[in-house]
Design a protein around this nucleic acid. Sequence first.
DNA 1: TGACTCATGTCAGCATTCTGACATAGGTTC
DNA 2: GAACCTATGTCAGAATGCTGACATGAGTCA
Lengths: 152, 152
Amino acid sequence: MSQEGVGVDLETSLGYLLKEASSALRAAMEEVLRPLGMSVTHYSCLELLAQRPGLSNSELARGAFVTRQTMNVLLQTLERDGYVTRPAKAPVGKALPTRLTPRGRRSLEKASTAVRSIEAKMLTRLTETEQSDASRILQSMIHSLHRDNKDA
Amino acid sequence: MSQEGVGVDLETSLGYLLKEASSALRAAMEEVLRPLGMSVTHYSCLELLAQRPGLSNSELARGAFVTRQTMNVLLQTLERDGYVTRPAKAPVGKALPTRLTPRGRRSLEKASTAVRSIEAKMLTRLTETEQSDASRILQSMIHSLHRDNKDA
DNA sequence: TGACTCATGTCAGCATTCTGACATAGGTTC
DNA sequence: GAACCTATGTCAGAATGCTGACATGAGTCA
């Protein structure tokens, strides 16, 4: 495995570990979503809509961590296939509030169950305390990364 | 911001937080690497080679969390532009050990500095204890996700 | 009112990554 | 040796996501 430890700090780099964990999670999600004919972004969009009905395209994009252009393409497909609906005219501004159709809700059910089992699997060896530690630490990382360092 | 809390557990989902943190890290890395004309995968490849000279294409792919086809395309570009070298003939098997050229090493230096500053920024508000907690917890998650549940 | 700024939806083109496929090198088992 | 399995490098095509660009709607400020 070419594992001669030559001043390697990849194993101890939290950035690398974060990427590795996220990659493993995504791979596991893709594995269970593929049989359902659903991609991770596809699932994320439906899950967001189930928990927050009426989100606009741009809001969904931010929630799924893709650009609004990417989400727009996905929404057009989901709308064409009858998973979501959007009004033809924006009630206010340009934002079009999106909602799940019964079909979309049904489709999400199995996917949601599968994904939750993945998340449970990920946490099997962690105590309650460790899980709340993880939550707090990850939120701190997110906050620090988003913060603009404009203080000279 | 459409934040009416309707049975939402996205904020408390560790899977979602993991994706959010990873996304923020990647965005921050892209931001500092773009001026250097380097993508995240591009940087990852060079960093891996600096720390473990002689890695093959497939090993680099696994280390950078992409497919070996993707890494192959990248390596061909890096080789053409003189950042890495590979022998024309495999010394054993088919694996071609890859190494950084002086130019590749120089190019990596600035990028490595920039990326380490991002990682430091990410950890600013975390204590030593929290950082080692994070390391242990992330490794547990990775282990659990990779483990095949074949035990009936 | 008019100019400015900002967020949004959307179209088009490009970049990146992936899946599928094939041939080859090495090891294992009989 | 032969059959088999696995890992590797590589080519080709498809899928996915991104950047650039434009027009529109709403709020701000003079």
